[in-house]
């Protein structure tokens, strides 16, 4: 096989892998704060691209302003979902599968409302920087992919600083380790849960916004992204944000090489096969599960 083609495939895989990684981090942040697997995570990815498109095209806002506003709106929606869907069940000590089903229901509601509010046609966004691809040893690296990789690495770095270096970040980690002990120190555990949802939703939105210029967004793209992000989180070691990012990169590269070898039709089969392989061989993931 042509080495340039393989290189091209790897570059493409790293780009999409970064997005899976960010979605996976979103899963981990909420899981750590609450023990909940939030399947509405895909909706945040879809909404990031969709709201930016609406603000840009219908609202005629400058691109950067549309992006910032979109991330804020989706983060706020994450907090609203926490307050309206998750917290009432959490307070009643609802079984975990009930809460997971509730987040899945929220995903479907958001998806249908988006369909009604916009339409069923795919939407895209302009690339961030309109420049020709850079050629590296016969491999064409498009600038949007660089934005995705650089943006994702910056976000992972900022998250590490947040969790390690800020009072609120440390409090969120404490809630993840022992929620009751955190409450006994006066740490507002409910507030931390809302913050986790807002943060995860914002991350999902950023992932969606970075990816949409290279692909498209539509009301129904959320679930496939949620599944890929979930697989990334499991591969990395569930509950470990940095592991989820590594898991996303692994999944993205493997998927991309598989598409090159077997065609795009087997993309999902390969993703699920990678998941099964990890579950059989190393169920705790690359870094080991957090809980």
């Amino acid at each position: 096989m042509d080495s340039a083609l393989i290189g091209q495939s790897l570059v493409s895989g790293l780009g999409i892998g970064c997005v899976y990684g960010l979605i996976g981090i979103g899963f981990c942040v909420i899981y750590n704060a609450s023990g909940i697997v939030n399947f509405a995570q895909g909706a945040f990815v879809m909404l990031g691209g969709m709201i930016t498109h609406v603000l840009l095209v219908r609202g005629q806002l400058p691109y950067f302003a549309a992006i910032v506003l979109s991330v804020l709106v989706v983060a706020l929606l994450g907090v609203v979902i926490e307050r309206l869907v998750v917290r009432p069940l959490w307070k009643r000590n609802a079984p975990m599968f009930v809460m997971i089903l509730a987040t899945l229901a929220a995903q479907i509601v958001i998806e249908r409302l988006t369909f009604l509010a916009v339409d069923d046609q795919p939407k895209t966004l302009p690339v961030f920087t309109d420049l020709p691809p850079i050629m590296v040893g016969g491999v064409a690296v498009n600038i949007q992919s660089l934005w995705i990789v650089a943006g994702s690495l910056a976000i992972v770095g900022l998250l590490a600083l947040f969790f390690k270096g800020t009072r609120t970040g440390k409090a969120m980690r404490a809630c993840a380790i022992n929620r009751e002990a955190a409450a006994l120190q006066g740490i507002p555990v409910h507030g931390m849960l809302a913050l986790a949802f807002g943060l995860s939703a914002g991350l999902g939105a950023i992932a969606g916004i970075m990816l949409t210029p290279t692909q498209y967004t539509a009301f129904n793209v959320g679930v496939p992204f949620a599944i890929s992000g979930f697989i990334a989180a499991i591969i990395g070691g569930f509950g470990r944000p940095f592991g989820a990012f590594l898991g996303g990169l692994t999944l993205g590269v493997v998927q991309s090489v598989a598409i090159l070898s077997f065609g795009a039709g087997l993309k999902t089969v390969v993703a699920l096969s990678v998941l099964l392989l990890f579950l059989f061989v190393r169920p705790s993931g690359i870094l080991g599960a957090a809980k």
Binding site: K170, R173, A174, I177, N178, E180, A181, A182, L184
Partner: peptide
């Protein structure tokens, strides 16, 4: 009881 310290921190 059990101290409740944040072990990894």
């Amino acid at each position: 009881e059990g101290r409740g310290i944040f072990g990894p921190m």
